[in-house]
Design a protein around this nucleic acid. Sequence first.
DNA 1: CGTATTATTGCAACATAATTGCATTAATAA
DNA 2: TTATTAATGCAATTATGTTGCAATAATACG
Lengths: 123, 123
Amino acid sequence: MKRRNTPAKTAVLNILQQAQSALSQDSIEAEVKGEMDRVTVYRVLNRFCEDGITHRILADDGKYYFALCLNCNEENHDHDHFHFRCLGCQKVECLKQQVQVILPQGYRQNAISSWVTGYCKNC
Amino acid sequence: MKRRNTPAKTAVLNILQQAQSALSQDSIEAEVKGEMDRVTVYRVLNRFCEDGITHRILADDGKYYFALCLNCNEENHDHDHFHFRCLGCQKVECLKQQVQVILPQGYRQNAISSWVTGYCKNC
DNA sequence: CGTATTATTGCAACATAATTGCATTAATAA
DNA sequence: TTATTAATGCAATTATGTTGCAATAATACG
Ligand SMILES: [Mn+2]
Ligand SMILES: [Mn+2]
Ligand SMILES: [Zn+2]
Ligand SMILES: [Zn+2]
């Protein structure tokens, strides 16, 4: 399924690139108000995830956030870092620190989702 | 608001005690099918949380899971441990390992939510 | 026990986040 | 320029959880 370049795709990608942080669907929707449908935002973001352009993280507020994959290449994705959500400015960031977990015997690890909520240095 | 003992409350508590793991509303609902309403399950569980009988954890599948507070006392709740969700049997457990995170300068930590998904030793 | 008080329940409606179906539009290849 | 089909808009649907309100029933108290 070959991808096509569309205004919607370009607009969402620009927003993510300028954000320097993970964004939720609704915050992106707010920025493109009128330009495109709500569903299109979801679909563009999901396609980005399928294509390895973004990664999708379910925050502890129950919403998905999307962040550009910065240190990933086509084959190796590495998203086992902590995520921080600020209760003041609502900003979500990918932290540098990797999550270290040792599972009990016989357990196999598939994915990790680690969140810290609190207040960032500006809040 | 003094609590009352009801069949609904007793049934849900029994299920949690026998489970030895965290349960979602829908899995509890499945076990009490016909006995009580969907909303009652939510309300019983939320009351347990208010009363410090259970704690509520939002999993990386977007659902809340409820687990008995075992090592908590009235004042000190300690839920900063990893949680494991099995993709095979759907079971959710609280792992022993505590989450260790060092935040960037100036950041304040409020709450932690750490999930590992994968397959347990039986799956 | 009998009665009053009010916590708890059931049911319908609502809220919010995200997905799906389908006809239409438009990006790309030939 | 035209054919192909990915992408879009809109409405409907799913999923999870909450809220309003009248009816029910657990508890306290004489
Ligand atoms: Mn990340
Ligand atoms: Mn726990
Ligand atoms: Zn902040
Ligand atoms: Zn399992």
